[in-house]
């Protein structure tokens, strides 16, 4: 499995990009972009008149401006669109103030709410954004407007980065953790959920005791689910309940959270029947950047922003 002398990084999730074959951007009036520079991943989404056109999903590097540029280049890669053709670009996420091509920065709370509204439909009432370094619980209305929000004030435990650290520690690719955490004979007690470092040493201890890997994964996933529960309990969960961000792809966490909450999360599919029919890629990590691009569209339509398109 592991080749000698070749470093293997189990946390490295694959980067993706895509372009919508059904849209010709030249015919579009407004071309807006959203760049979500998170602590772990960077997404760039390009929309043409409010329709999903292209995206790039990359890992954040050590420098926000470079990461934003990389994400944007990756999104533009398969298109014949250039940065100069974009009317308005909005930065969001942890590094939003350091996005060089953005004309405006909007907090990720608003953008995730708006993005989730677009992706999952207007009947979404609670959005849980589980990002790389923090999680936010948001109540939204039918237009994707934030009604109530709550952010965790602790560290990276129980978030995406914690999961990556964990994957590297037990030498299992990060995307296999979810499915494998169910291959167990009994549900183990969950591990420490307050700190990544404590959780890590606890995992090392469990490995030493000879606890099977899959059981440790289950313990870690349930710790994460439990941590999110604290936030959701305070805010109150209303259906339709959706999870955005990278952890939404980890069924080990999502299913355990559903069990603890007693509420199912909405199916991860486009609310727009056309998008569903044409099988456009649905990536929960895109919510923030999608929301930002949609805000750009609204601002242009309302005349609150001026197009910076050069060609």
């Amino acid at each position: 499995m592991v080749e000698q002398g070749k470093p293997v990084e189990f946390w490295r999730w694959p980067e993706t990009n895509w372009v919508n074959p059904d849209i010709d951007w030249i015919k579009g009036e407004w071309i807006t972009a959203g760049v979500d520079v998170g602590s772990v991943s960077t997404q760039a989404v390009i929309m043409v008149d409010g329709e999903f056109y292209a995206f790039g999903n990359t890992r954040t590097g050590s420098d926000s401006p470079n990461s934003a540029q990389k994400g944007m280049d990756y999104a533009l890669e398969k298109t014949d669109l250039k940065l100069e053709n974009i009317d308005y670009c909005i930065g969001t996420g942890y590094g939003r103030v350091n996005v060089p091509m953005a004309q405006q920065a909007i907090t990720e709370i608003s953008c995730h709410a708006r993005g989730a509204n677009f992706m999952y439909g207007p009947d979404v009432r609670t959005v849980m954004d589980m990002g790389g370094q923090d999680c936010k619980a948001i109540n939204v209305d039918d237009r994707g407007k934030v009604l109530n929000f709550m952010m965790n004030d602790k560290c990276a435990a129980g978030t995406g980065r914690g999961m990556e650290v964990f994957a590297d520690l037990i030498h299992i690719p990060v995307w296999e953790i979810g499915p494998r955490s169910f291959l167990i004979s009994r549900e183990p007690p969950s591990i420490s959920n307050t700190c990544v470092v404590f959780a890590k040493s606890e995992v090392v201890g469990l490995l030493e005791q000879g606890v099977p890997e899959n059981e440790i994964m289950a313990a870690y996933c349930s710790a994460m689910a439990h941590r999110i529960m604290e936030l959701l309990k305070r805010l109150g969960v209303k259906e339709k309940f959706v999870i955005t961000g990278g952890i939404a792809k980890n069924e080990g966490v999502v299913k355990r959270l559903e069990k603890e909450l007693g509420i199912k999360t909405a199916e991860q599919a486009w609310a727009n029947p056309q998008y569903r029919e044409k099988n456009y890629p649905f990536d929960t990590q895109l919510a923030g950047a999608l929301g930002a691009a949609l805000f750009g569209q609204s601002l242009l339509e309302l005349g609150k922003a001026k197009s910076v398109r050069k060609t």
Binding site: L147, N148, F149, M150, D153, R234, L235
Partner: peptide
């Protein structure tokens, strides 16, 4: 909109 700014200390969870 209701904005919660939370913190926790030894006496529990608090929100402004």
């Amino acid at each position: 909109m209701i904005a919660n700014y939370g913190f926790n200390d030894a006496s529990g969870d608090w929100f402004l």
